[in-house]
Amino acid sequence: MSDQVLLQARGVRKSFGTVEVLKGIDLDVRQGQVVSLIGASGSGKTTFLRCVNLLEEHDGGDILLDGDPIGYRVADGRRKRLSETKVSAQRARIGMVFQSFNLFPHLTAEGNVMLGLTKVLGKGKAEARDIAGHWLDRVGLGARRGHYPYQLSGGQQQRVAIARAVAMQPRLLLFDEVTSALDPELVAEVLGVMQKLAEEGMTMLVVSHEMLFVREVSHHVVFMDQGRVAQAGSPAEIFDRPENERLKGFLGRFHAMFGQAV
């Protein structure tokens, strides 16, 4: 693992109307690291993730990817919003997997993976098909490449969505509560795929409620509370030596549910 900082967030703020959802977030993701965001719903985890991928525009602070600011450039000391083309190019360097899968229903599993390869990266059909096949194999769905999303289970759909994101060879992969919409028995297959990716050195920023997974796989855990980073540290620091009172309360609920395993 290198020490190079891939994603750097400094003082990121975001409001929806009068509600300030992010009140200055500082966060680093190093190359090859898995960083997890935990916290109660409404703490701003998902909003932060969406800001990183420009699905929301942050109002203040900086988000830098490889040192480049996301969503704007600085000219004459002022921020200028990037053009649609530039924004799309930035998004192509960041993959995202959604809670509700969001597979394209009019395309097969293979078609879903190929779309970005052909239309964004400009690869030929044949090459894109090879890449799609490779990644669908990797998520264990090589045999389902011709299936439409409605023919797949939730867990399978989410694995296709992961393949779609990884196939673009992004610098960073965002996971937004990707198992929350799944039936309990399907969660493991998705987490398994994520763990494999993590072991291979994929840089990942993960919002999750799966505490066992977070503890097992993360290099760094960030506990968010009411739009701020309340405590951040190694999994051991967060889970075994929580200092923040709100974090203790938050973990307490998981301990109550799963015993001392977490």
Partner: peptide, 17 residues
């Protein structure tokens, strides 16, 4: 669904695409 547009954005497709 709005998620379709977001997923399309996330893989870097521009507006016309």
């Amino acid at each position: 669904p709005a998620g379709q547009m977001e997923a399309a954005k996330a893989i870097g497709l521009n507006f016309p695409k």
